[in-house]
Amino acid sequence: MNLVRFLLDNRTDLLDSILQHLWLVGLSTAFAMLIGIPLGIVIAHRPRLNKPVLASANIIQTIPSLALFGFLLPVPWLGARSDRLAILALTLYALLPIIRNTYTGIDGVDPAVVEAGRGMGLTESQLLFQVELPLALSVILSGVRVAVVISVGVATIAAAIGAGGLGQFIFRGISMVDNRVILTGAIPAAILALLADVGVGWLERRLRWR
């Protein structure tokens, strides 16, 4: 078993790469949630903004990731450290599913329920935090889940600009024409994506209101 042997020999390297990978994905997802959820809430309440915002997020999504990494490279503060750059790019990619699902989730709350709440004298922020967000939560989380899974995959490409992560093995393996090295990066990346999917999915079901 060549592959197992190779994995064991490189275990510290592999562990470092996994941690780097998690750091890239974790931080970018957190940023994307911080930006995307409020944006989704805003466009759900101001329908006029929803087309331009969703269209912009859509356009970002269509830029090939390798090109985006390349574009951002000459930017002064960002280009100085490749992990900053990778986190920014990953954040941009994670925005669309989070914005869209927040919008869909809040837009899907029964208008009669919202009006009943308003008629009872709830303020707009009480309506948002006690009614709209709790009811939209599982839909929002399924957007986060999609975002995380995409990020785990795209983050492997971040190695091309030297941001580290599991992509290092993949790129190294390609240039060495060595499948063992490629798999050393690819298998843990796939496992991470699956774990994230299952983990956030579990959270999503736990927090569903029924």
Partner: peptide, 20 residues
């Protein structure tokens, strides 16, 4: 406005209860 509404009970068709 919120004070006004809290002083007036409001009942609608299908109740409009908070499902959660």
């Amino acid at each position: 406005v919120t004070m006004l509404r809290r002083g007036i009970g409001y009942v609608i068709q299908n109740a409009g209860l908070f499902p959660h």
